[in-house]
Design a binder for these strands. Structure first.
Length: 772
DNA sequence: CAGTGAGCGAGCTTCCGCTTGACTT
């Protein structure tokens, strides 16, 4: 039996390390945290100095029992969780939970997985840093208090099952406020003038841009008029060197951004693929905020660059992080072996690996060098100048393998290239001058990746939570990912050619959106409620401020319980005041009056989401209600659209003895026919769909008869059925998996009963139940 | 799995950060 037990966080890491350490060491993984506050209540004894109540969750009990057994047999237990706040806490929880004696525990850390680094770590053990652990406890408890005290206020004041938190609520706020900026944005128009000149000494024409933008068409026309008889002279030709440096290696956030821009991957898709590459040993850990590369990686990069591109392309660089709150427990994301250009993976895996390989290699390559040329051209009749820019690449450097893309989808940049041969004093002949009408652009909406970037800039959230946060705010229906078609607008183009000024009006597309984050009514209303009642918590600087205090705790300068006490007193007072005094918030808007009944029509948030109310609640007559469609917004729904919602259900008449009833359900439009319900495809409109079409849908819907493999006369409640995941047993409404190795048709009643009685109690049924 | 919204009140919802499979009918 091994004398040493090493515990790391990740099983993939455990496997690698075991190889380096030899027979005396057994390496196990804790799979992250092993215990936490209980989920069902706040789990903190606030009166008793914020004493937390930690429990080992059900899915970790087996693991903890195993670790206990291994620890009992070992002489020394090496706690090798990550070198950051959470890692230190994991080590401490392990020590506490496994009841390890101080004399047997050694805490070691390494932030690269190489034999030298690990052996060095083993030679330099230390004790658990309790200050750092306390900083984590403060973080954990503060997040729990914020989440579990504010969320219930939302349940009472807005809608059940909503949530608020230090991270998610700021994410929603960013999206809501950006939408407001867009709504208030007034586009202004301006004109950019460019010109094409004939050059005496070259056949290639010279393209230039006027150094002034005009606001009105009159200004443009007067400018072009003054060009008709003007002479154009090259005033100066200036050449200067320029360079571009490569981007640093990937962190989680930059990988998500680049995979989104270059490969079109969602944030969660990127993480799933990266996880697989990591488990296969192709890349280093994918949840990191560090841009650092290990000495080993730099050596591998050097070899690869020298052999593939030559010595002149090599430029070893050390990058330092700029992001707030980075803890740098891991390396940057890089290929484990840089000479490995292609990996065995599916198409997406190959693409993501290729991106990581290129970014890593490029980060250690030389700057690209350019020569930039600026030419200004005098106009004899005006003081404005035309300006031409040229650029030639002297040395491509890192651009040989990688160029960073930007979020700017507007191709504003001129296509820079080689200029024709010209010198100062040359006279130019104007061939064409063109003024294009342009419009100032509204601020861009966030997509998943740009939201992650913004959160990281604010120091909010961690690499392991970016993807889950994005999914949470969508699950709560605070925001939606949507596309918007382009709109059209007229654009004027005014040209001057051969002494003639002409105007043309064309049409341009603008404002198309693809997979952008839009706030919903609920998101907007909850954000309004939070910014009004919990201003400090949703402040963009809140996280940065508490992080400073967590750092003080980690340094031993601040007591964690005191810190929490200082935070809690005013916070809790705010919670109580808000739940007593603030009004229920429904975002109610009076749309107008129903022309038929004269009743008021309101749009508001109800218990089940956005709805239309016909009539007032204070009157004798009970109001009528109808849910709004997902695409409709309280802000801009019209009376006509609202009244249309009351046209459901529609009875289209008899079909084989039953009425065809078209209605809207929780899962969208459907046809009710007798006892069966049939979904109406998205291509049809439930408000206008006709009888014949419904019959067609009914006929095309396969009957839901389940394939019964076996029944028992003695026990009619037990059935063996064929499902999409293979055969299973159904008994009294519950389903049971058939153990591997047994044939479904040959199961006896006794065996079925045994499977049913031995089945583990259902764990996750709650999450699948309809939310009621 | 298929409209609900008053009011009564049971009993439920909820956070962030660290890690992977188990699971779905």
């Amino acid at each position: 039996m091994a004398k040493n037990l090493v515990i790391v966080e990740s099983p993939a890491k455990a496997k690698t390390i075991e190889k380096f350490l030899g027979e005396d060491f057994k390496v196990k993984s804790s799979f992250g945290h092993i215990r936490d506050l209980t989920k069902k209540n706040i789990s903190i004894d606030i009166e008793n100095q914020f004493e937390p109540n930690y429990v080992v969750s059900e899915d970790k009990q087996k693991l903890v029992a195993e670790l206990e057994k291994d620890a009992a047999k070992a002489e020394i237990i090496w706690l090798a969780s990550d070198e950051d706040r959470e890692g230190e806490a994991i080590a401490w929880h392990l020590k506490e939970t496994l009841k390890l004696d101080d004399s047997k525990v050694k805490r070691i850390v390494f932030n690269e997985i190489t034999k030298t680094a690990i052996l060095r770590a083993v030679e330099n053990p230390r004790q658990i840093d309790i200050n750092l652990v306390n900083a984590q406890q403060a973080r954990r408890i503060l997040d729990r208090i914020v989440g579990y005290e504010i969320s219930p206020v939302l349940w009472r004041k807005v809608k059940p099952a909503l949530s608020a938190g230090r991270v998610q609520s700021v994410a929603v706020r960013l999206i809501v406020e950006r939408e407001e900026e867009i709504k208030n944005f007034v586009s202004t128009t301006f004109y950019k003038v460019n010109a094409t000149f004939k050059v005496e000494t070259d056949t290639k024409p010279l393209n230039a841009v006027l150094n002034k933008k005009f606001e009105t068409k009159d200004e443009v026309i007067s400018f072009l008029k003054s060009c008709i008889d003007a002479t154009f002279t090259v005033n100066g030709v200036e050449k200067k060197p320029a360079k571009q440096s490569p981007a640093p290696p990937f962190t989680t956030s930059t990988l998500q951004q680049e995979a989104s821009r270059k490969l079109g991957f969602s944030v969660s898709k990127t993480m799933t693929i990266a996880q697989k590459l990591y488990e296969a040993g192709y890349i280093t850990y994918m949840r990191t905020d560090s841009v650092n590369l290990s000495e080993l990686a730099l050596e591998l990069a050097k070899q690869e660059i020298e052999s593939s591109f030559g010595k002149e392309y090599l430029h070893i660089r050390k990058y330092t992080t700029k992001s707030k709150g980075a803890q740098e427990a891991h390396e940057a994301i890089r290929p484990t072996y840089l000479n490995n250009k292609v990996v065995e993976a599916d198409a997406s895996g190959k693409k993501l690996y290729d991106l990581i390989w290129k970014r890593t290699i490029a980060s250690q390559m030389a700057d690209a060098k350019f020569e930039k040329t600026n030419v200004d051209i005098n106009i004899s009749t005006r003081k404005e100048k035309f300006v031409a820019q040229g650029e030639i690449v002297l040395f491509d450097g890192f651009l040989k393998v990688y160029s960073v893309s930007t979020d700017d989808d507007t191709e504003n940049e001129e296509n820079l290239s080689l200029l024709p041969n010209i010198k100062q004093g040359d006279n130019l002949e104007l061939l064409l001058s063109k003024a294009n009408q342009s419009f100032t652009q509204q601020p861009p909406r966030y997509n998943e990746a740009s939201l992650v970037k913004k959160l990281e800039d604010l120091g909010i959230g961690r690499p392991s939570t970016y993807a889950p946060t994005i999914s949470t705010i969508q699950k709560r229906e605070y925001v939606v990912l949507e596309n918007r078609p382009a709109k059209k607008r007229d654009v004027e183009t005014i040209t001057l050619s051969k002494g003639q000024i002409k105007e043309v009006v064309g049409v341009e597309n603008y404002g198309a959106e693809k997979l952008k984050l839009f706030p919903t009514d609920i998101g907007t209303i909850v954000n309004g409620f939070l910014t009004q009642n919990f201003k400090d918590i949703v402040d963009y600087n809140f996280t940065a401020e508490v992080e400073k205090e967590f750092d003080d705790i980690a340094q031993g300068h601040l007591d964690w319980r005191k810190m929490l006490d200082t935070f809690y007193k005013p916070f809790h007072k705010g919670v109580e005041e808000c739940s007593e005094n603030s009004e229920r918030t429904s975002g109610e808007r009076l749309i107008g009056v129903d022309p038929k009944s004269g009743l008021n029509i309101y749009a508001k948030i109800g218990r089940f989401g956005p709805m239309i109310q016909l009539g007032d609640t204070s009157t004798e007559e009970k109001p009528k209600f109808a849910s709004m469609k997902k695409t409709q917004r309280i802000d801009d729904i019209t009376i006509e659209e609202a009244l249309k919602l009351f046209e459901m259900p529609r009875n289209l008449g008899d079909y084989e003895g039953n009425d065809i009833i078209v209605n809207l359900g929780r899962f969208g439009p459907y046809i009710k026919l007798g006892t069966s319900n049939i979904s109406i495809p998205k291509t049809e409109d439930a408000y206008t769909i006709e009888y014949e079409k419904c019959v067609e849908i009914i006929k095309n819907t396969p009957s839901k008869d389940k394939k019964v493999l076996k029944t028992f006369a003695e026990a009619p409640e037990i059935e063996i059925l064929e499902g999409i995941y293979g055969p299973y047993i159904k008994s009294n409404g519950s389903n049971y998996k058939i153990p591997k190795g047994s044939s479904a048709e040959e199961l006896s009643l006794e065996e079925c009963r045994k499977i049913i009685s031995e089945a583990p109690p259902k764990k996750s049924t709650k999450t699948r139940k309809t939310k009621k």
